[in-house]
Amino acid sequence: MSRPALRAVETVSPPEPLAAATAEVIQLAPRAAASTLGWLKPKAVAFATSVVPPLLMVALLLLIWEILCSGSNASLPPPSRVWKEASDLILDPFFVNGSQDIGLGWRVLTSLQRVAIGFGLSAIVGILVGTLVGQSTWAMRGLDPIFQVLRTVPPLAWLPISLAAFRDANPSAIFVIFITAIWPILINTSVGIRNIPQDYRNVSAVLRLNQFEFFWKIMLPSAAPYIFTGLRIGVGLAWLAIVAAEMLTGGVGIGFFIWDAWNSSKLPDIIIALVYIGLVGFILDRLIAALATVVTRGTAAN
């Protein structure tokens, strides 16, 4: 509990001369209790400074876009037309007007469900295999080049093979996500495992930890920063792959929606869908990053 209190004191009295610092320290406990309000203010300032500039930038870009595309022979719709023709997609993401006419929110959720399965599998398999590979120098030497090659295969290149193997759209899409997301997770995990300091191995040797305990208590936490780097790259790739895969496999996902809108020349719909995809990808990335800071708290600080 002493940490937030300290932080509160630091932020509440910024411009005071150094001489006052000792007096502050003595008041530590009472101040901490009473300073919730004072603590909120700098938070609000920080929030404003991180949110206002991007909002301004977005407004500026929309304006430029509007100007560029408002001519009569512009090939793309300006923001005003996007809003006019597709505002229902923005305002009500969760409508249902029949099996194919549903809100973008539902479509995103369908896609997210596939990503959750595919990415979840790749996380489990990637971490387990990465752990095995990282422990053995020979496995590393033999497998690393193969992984490095497979890593660069674009997601869509896997699709025909997986369609042939699974004979069904949904498992194929999930497999494409899996195979796209697994490489960074696997490679980063194995690097993390290889970089476990000898000190930790010595500690576990003295304690006679068995393989299982060593895996849970030393390996995973020690490699966690690496693993999360892999997961973060992986989730980004998974989201890239789902959209591409759905374009080809059909269904109700957000990817197929874009393909469908293209076929019926509804450009405004596509643009809205792009915004959805971008935002969801951003949120996924932030979720993993937030999870990483919670889980690896203290790991980096040694």
């Binding site: 000190d199 500690v203 203290g298």
Partner: peptide, 19 residues
């Protein structure tokens, strides 16, 4: 021949688990 808790070591660089 093997390490074990009967011969506990205090390492030069403390070797605490940071997490």
């Amino acid at each position: 021949n093997d390490p074990g808790p009967d011969r506990a070591v205090v390492f030069q660089n403390h070797s605490l688990l940071p997490w």
